[in-house]
Every structure is written in structure tokens, then in C-alpha cells.
């Protein structure tokens, strides 16, 4: 163990001297006989932190000094799920209603989460953890929860990385939890995201969720006609701006699929793009949809021609797939 002077915890303001450390086993880097199998040559400070964490966890100690220790470890390994889980248990105790500063423990924790999130944008645990803390806050001190604070951090995170999977997933849960499907700001945010980058598929997915989520989740029996026609127009407008963008095509197609609408009505729209010849690019999605429309029209010959065109000239990397689609036609 490192001596007191070099302790990584010397400036912590907490006293850990009563704890009997449980040290991690030492590794001999010169042992050539046994395969090390990914044992890590830990640093002394990490060894010290874990050697204190283990007895504290064993004793189920839910204290400020334990909380501080988890902070130090997460700073070193953000993906340390055990420590996240232990930290949650600590907070659950520290924020109980009989504590004088229970609510500020939780609001401080949300602020701490933000710092960690900004430093670890790809982390799995943090957003789930944040959700758990918010649930605690809502359960114990509902008037202390500031929904605007959530918007702020989410906005910041999605500015940094506009396709961050975990953040978008958190945002979806957040919308569901507070029933924000129709909230103007939420819709404006996601439309702005799409407008600044039409190929941000995560934003398209979120828009789909806002507009059709309640229907898909069976919270609603139907989708308003006006919503459907607005979204179809929106998708068409953006396809017209960028006809090779798969995100807007998938959105349009997705609406038809989920509502079981007839794609034949898209024929005149689609043919605008199958007739459009760019020198350097082609709207594969328009051709794929056109082939499917021909199938519904029972015009298998036309459909076959489209698949052949895709396989031979327009989209040769997917030649196997187009051949497969063509082969399916004869089966039908």
C-alpha cells in the first residue's frame, strides 16, 4: 500500500484510516509461465481506491466518503458498472426524506452527472443512472425537479455529437415519461436538428417516435390524418432537397408501413426521382420503391426491369440483393 503521504485521497477531506483495505492481488509482470489473461498492471492510486472500495461495499456503507470514492473511480473508469450501482445505493440512502439536505443530494448529483457525461460522451451507464436519480427525485421531492435542466444538458450533448445513441435513447424515455410528444419545443428541437443536418438519422428516428410513438406503443388507437399528411409532406419536401438521402426515404416508407397505407399513391412522386439522372449519384431508394409499386400493380415485368437496372448499373454493390428481389418475383 502506498504510504499516507502519497495517498490519492489525501486532499479528499475524508478520513479513511479506520478501514482495513482489501488489496487487489499483485501481478508479477515477469511471470512468463502462466498466461496473464488480461490482468492489468494497475496504478498505485487505482489499487488504493479499489482496496478501500471493497471493504466499504462489503459493509454496505452509504456515506459521503464512500460517495467520494466512487467519484474518484468513475473518473478513472467511466464504464465501471459496479461502482455506478453502488453509487446509486449510496444516493438512495443519503437522499432519504429524513435527511435535512436529501433533495440537494439529488440535484447536486444531476449536476455531477452532467460533468461526467461531457467527459465520457460514449458511456453506457451514465444516462441510465441519470434516469434512476430523476426517478428518486420525482418520488421524494417532485417539486425540486427542473425539466428545463434536462433540455439544457440534452441540447448540449446533442450539439457535441448529433447522433449520440445513448443520449437520443434517453431523450426518448424522457419524452415518454413526461408525455412530451406534443410539446412545441420538443418538435422544434428535432426539426431544427434535421434542418441543420438532413442526414441525421437519429433525429429522424426521434421525429418518428414523437409523431407515431404513441400509436406504436398502443397508447393511441389511431394517428390523426393531419399528422400523417403533414409528415408525408415533410418527408417529401426533404427528399426533393436531397433525393439520395436514405433517412428521409426511410421515414416516408416507415409511415406507409406502420399505417399500412398503399404505396401506389406515391408513384408520381417516386418517378420524379427515377427519371432524374445525376451525373455522380442515383436515388436507389426511389428505384426500390418503384419496383415495389410495380409489384402491387401486378406488373412484375416492370418490377423485374427495375431490379435488373439496379443490379447491373445503378447499385452494383447490392447485386446479390437485387437478384434476390428479382427471384422473389417469379416465386410470387
Amino acid at each position: 500500500m502506498p504510504n499516507e503521504k502519497s495517498s490519492v485521497l489525501q486532499d479528499s477531506g475524508f478520513d479513511y484510516s479506520d478501514i482495513t483495505p482489501i488489496p487487489l492481488k499483485t501481478i508479477d509482470p515477469n511471470d512468463l509461465k502462466t498466461p496473464a489473461l488480461c490482468d492489468i498492471l494497475y496504478s498505485d492510486d487505482y489499487r488504493e481506491l479499489i482496496s478501500l472500495l471493497r471493504p466499504l461495499m462489503k459493509a454496505n456503507e452509504h456515506s459521503q466518503r464512500a460517495l467520494y470514492l466512487t467519484d474518484m473511480i468513475i473518473e478513472r473508469i467511466a464504464g465501471h458498472y459496479t461502482v455506478w450501482s453502488y453509487r446509486y445505493n449510496i444516493l438512495e440512502t443519503l437522499s432519504s426524506k429524513d435527511k435535512s439536505n436529501g433533495s440537494s443530494e439529488l440535484t447536486n448529483e444531476l449536476a455531477w452527472c452532467e460533468e461526467v457525461a461531457l467527459q465520457n460522451p460514449k458511456n453506457y451507464q451514465i444516462w441510465h443512472y441519470r434516469g434512476l436519480i430523476i426517478d428518486l427525485l420525482l418520488d421524494r421531492y417532485p417539486d425540486q425537479f427542473d425539466i428545463e435542466g434536462e433540455y439544457k444538458i440534452l441540447k448540449h450533448m446533442l450539439n457535441e455529437d448529433n447522433k449520440n445513441y445513448h443520449v437520443w435513447s434517453y431523450r426518448r424515455l424522457f419524452v415518454e415519461k413526461f408525455d412530451l410528444f406534443d410539446k412545441k419545443e420538443e418538435l422544434q428541437f428535432v426539426r431544427d436538428k434535421i434542418n441543420e443536418d438532413m442526414r441525421n438519422n437519429s433525429a429522424w428516428n426521434h421525429l418518428f417516435f414523437l409523431k407515431f410513438g404513441r400509436y406504436k406503443l398502443k397508447l393511441q388507437k389511431t394517428v390523426d390524418d393531419s399528422v400523417v399528411s403533414d409528415e408525408i409532406s415533410f418527408a417529401k419536401e426533404l427528399i426533393s432537397k436531397a433525393p439520395t438521402n436514405p433517412s428521409s426515404w426511410n421515414y416516408l416508407n416507415g409511415i406507409y408501413k406502420i399505417l399500412k397505407k398503399n404505396i401506389i399513391e406515391l408513384k408520381s412522386f417516386v418517378t420524379q426521382f427515377t427519371n432524374l439522372v445525376y451525373e455522380d449519384s442515383v436515388s436507389v431508394y426511389a428505384f426500390e420503391l418503384l419496383a415495389e409499386i410495380h409489384v402491387l400493380e401486378k406488373d412484375l415485368e416492370e418490377s423485374k426491369k427495375v431490379y435488373e437496372l439496379l443490379a447491373k448499373t445503378l447499385d452494383p454493390v447490392r447485386v446479390n440483393y437485387w437478384e434476390y428481389k428479382k427471384a422473389q418475383l417469379t416465386v410470387v
Binding site: C38, D39, L41
Partner: peptide, 8 residues
């Protein structure tokens, strides 16, 4: 990497 310990 299977044989040797991983660096810090």
C-alpha cells in the same frame, strides 16, 4: 496480449 499483463 493473452500472455502478458496489460499496461496501465
Amino acid at each position: 496480449y493473452l500472455q502478458n499483463p496489460l499496461p496501465v
